[in-house]
Each structure stands twice: as structure tokens, then as C-alpha cells.
Design a protein around this nucleic acid. Sequence first.
DNA 1: CATGCTATAATTTGATCATATTCTTCAGCG
DNA 2: CGCTGAAGAATATGATCAAATTATAGCATG
Lengths: 256, 256
Amino acid sequence: MVYAFMQNEMLQHTAKQDGKTAPMGSEKTDPRLLPAADAAVKTPIHQHVYERLRKMILFGDLAPGQGVTIQGLTAALDAGMTPVREAIRRLISEGALTHLGNRRVTVPELTHAGLEELGFMRETLEPELTKRAANRMTDGRLNALHDCDNALNLAIDRGDVGGYLMQNYSFHRMIYDLAEAPIMAATVDRLWLRFGPSLRGVCGRYGTSNLPDKHAELLAAFAAGDAALAGEVMAGDVAQGMTQIRAALDGLPIPR
Amino acid sequence: MVYAFMQNEMLQHTAKQDGKTAPMGSEKTDPRLLPAADAAVKTPIHQHVYERLRKMILFGDLAPGQGVTIQGLTAALDAGMTPVREAIRRLISEGALTHLGNRRVTVPELTHAGLEELGFMRETLEPELTKRAANRMTDGRLNALHDCDNALNLAIDRGDVGGYLMQNYSFHRMIYDLAEAPIMAATVDRLWLRFGPSLRGVCGRYGTSNLPDKHAELLAAFAAGDAALAGEVMAGDVAQGMTQIRAALDGLPIPR
DNA sequence: CATGCTATAATTTGATCATATTCTTCAGCG
DNA sequence: CGCTGAAGAATATGATCAAATTATAGCATG
């Protein structure tokens, strides 16, 4: 739960207190001390910033249409401008943020046309990844998937939207990694950044109680070693998910 | 021909003459003066650097395996560190460069597994883009495609490898843009960065005299308004291209 | 005494920051 | 209603720090 601690407005550089008279107790808290504080502290700041921002976008902490400013992030994440700039630029190139007009950056809003494109790509690529994953399945990997799906169902039962989103992503992501097809996996992974921000809207509309998936069938197909079936089931799961998003997009007056 | 002026070694910061005693006549040539020198000079430097680097990678000016350093680029392109850093970061996130080991960046070498992934994705996505383009075809657009293909054939006849690579990319890219499917187009466009560096190797092995394509059939399908046929032809064109790359990869001991 | 290995020094390069510059926007004024 | 100027935010620079690779020198061993 590292990704929900920050409120949206903080990114807008509202904290007018700048530097001098400011944080009182937070004596320059070195950002590199946060992760492990001990072994191998070598992940660069820009990487941290990127990952944090990415999760915030992916799990709906940043709403579509919301603006993002460099200075807001430097203040909120207490990092320099250069790492923040690099992280933003990277997210822009991945489609997770858009350079709207001149020098202004926002989380893009998903259009129907965009959703249709995403649907086509996911329904083509994810079954393929799933088939490859099925062909490389082992007991250990299958168990990990089961654990993840259990955590997902637990989150659903608890009504824990953030947990559901995270576990659902993890479940799919785990399959991508198993497929041993890094380019395709990275491609599909990037697509999540496009519809991720809208997923929270789906939950907001329907709640977690009404969120079916085909994970159980998928796990059964994996267990049976039936790659073709696994691919078909995945296609169904993806189609179902995209339909949910489309319904939310149609139903709501697009939350901004 | 703006992309071939720079030799590879220049990127490694070999020019030992630093600053003071240096370039003699090039009095700090403002990089923003180069493009149009008059109207709307507003493209940011990082964008310029990105586009230049991108073309260098795409058209084989940078060989696979070749290292790229920030300081080398700042010297070669005479830009600051920040724009160069951003451009590199962006290319890395697009897969055009890789962060190999600790803090070293190179043009990745294409593996057989990678080529297979790229082939699958291109053969799925490009026919779809082509079908959509066919459904939006107009006389003007078709003429533009014809012009591009003519330029391509001219380059082939001249044995102009750089021109061939550029026109071939332009031809496909033009179709992507016509499809009015920005996400899919951007996705496929990124794939070119992965196999682009290897294309020059293909030409180096076979020359331009022996480079068949299905562009004529494709244009005929467009003219006939037959979207399904256009998609099939494109699938064939892509498959053919990927086969050429595979042959080059197999034949040569991987040129480095 | 020569050769090879390890440890240390130097240079190169990447990461970060503070600062200057440019562009956009918006408010006040003619 | 348009123009001008101020404020704020993004872009870009150079300096500084840290890490890593390479070069060098000293030591040990044959």
C-alpha cells in the first residue's frame, strides 16, 4: 500500500511554503533511505520517481484529466527537477501522460476509439502471451498465480478497491513475465497505463462485489497444460474487462 | 539526408580537444537556428535531440551493440546534458536503447527470439492498421503513397541504402497515420526501432538490387477499395521483410 | 630477476542539483 | 477590446558529486 499515500492536489505545487520556513521536522529526509536502508541502495532517484508516478497512474490515484506539474512533483516527492523531468518524459512516451498543448501535462482521458484500439491489441496479444506462459508453466509458478488470485478475491470480498486493482494487475503481469517474450510483455504492459486510470472508475460505479473474471478457468487450463484453452479463456477475460470499462465510460458523464 | 552526417565514433567523446582550443569556426552555432531559421522555432531542444538520435538508430547510423554516452552526445550534438538525458531516457523506454548492466547504454542487438516476437506483433497489428487505412483512403492519400513508393524504387535503382530505408519506413508510417488509430500506430512505430538497426545489415548483405516488396499489390488493393485484401497483402509484405532480416541474422556472424 | 595478481589512484561518465532563461498566461490599463 | 507587463512554470545550462572503469604501481611468487 505504498501508492495511495499521496493526495492528488499535492502534485499541483499548492504547498506554498517553499524550502526555508518549511517542513519543521523532516530534516532533508534522504529519499534514498526509504527503500531498504541497508543493502544495495543503488536504484537511482529517477527510477523511484518513475515507479511511484507509474503506480499512481495505474491504480487511479491520479484521475484522468488531472494535470501534473514538475514543480508539484518535486515538492511532493521531495526530489530534484531532473529526475522528475525524466520520469515524466518517460511516462509521456509510454502514453501514460500526454503533452497537452504547450508545456502542460495531464493524465489522458480514455476515448471510445482509444478503448477500441486497446481492446483489439489486448485481445490479440494477451492470448498469445498466455499460450506461451502455459507452455512454460511449472508447479511453483502455478502456485504463485493461485496465491495472487486468492489475494485478489480477498480484496474483492473486503471491498478493497486499491487492493483489487493491484492484484488484478499483478495476476496478468505475472503471466506476461512467464511467457518469456519481453518485447510483447512490455508492449502489453504499456497498454495498462492507458486504461488503468479508468479502472478505478469502473469500481467506483459497480463496486468490487460485481467484478467477475475468468481467472479460475484460466488456472484450470494452466493446470491441465492446455495452452490453446488458456489462450481462449484469456481472450474472454480481456473482452469482459474491456466491456466493463466501456460500460463505465458510457454510464458516467466521464468523471473529472 | 540530415541523419548520416555524423560518424559513430564521435559519440564516444573521443574529441580530446575540449572547449577552449576547439572547433575554430563553429562559433557556438545555436542549435535552434538549424531547422527553419524563421517561422515558429518552438520545437524544444530535447525534441530535436530525440528525433536525431531516433533517426540515427532507425536508419542504422548506429550499429547494434554500439555504446552511447551522454557526454558524447552533448559534444556531438552541441546540446546540454538535460535534453540529451531526456532523449536517451525516452529511447530506452521505447526499446531503442538498452540500459546494459550498470550505467552503460547501447543499441541492443536483435536476437532470434526478439525477431520472432516482433514478427508476430507486426503480422497481427499491421494488417489491422492497413485495413483501417484502406477504409479511410482518398485519392490524395493514395497519390502520396504512390509518390513515396516511387521514391523508394528510385532509391533502390540508385543503390541508395539510406534512401531506401527511409522511404520504406515512410511508406509504412504513412499507412499507420492514415489508419487513425494512434495507440496502435505508436505501438507498431516503436517496433521499428527494434529491428531498424538490423535493416542496414540486410542491405549490406544483399544490396538494394534484391529487395522485393508487395507495395504495388498493396496500392492496387487500396485503389480497389478492398480492405480485406489490403490487410492480407500487408501481412505478406511484413512476413517477407522479417524473413529477410532473419536470413541476414543467420547468415552473418552478427556484425559488430 | 621476471611475471602475474591485487590494490590503489586517476579518468571518464552518469546522476543530481541550483540557477538562469524562455515561454505562457493572466491581470491591469489604455 | 486589445496591449503590455508581471508572475509562474517549463526548458536548458553548467557545476558538483558519486560511481565505475581503466591505468598504474607495488607486492608476492616462481
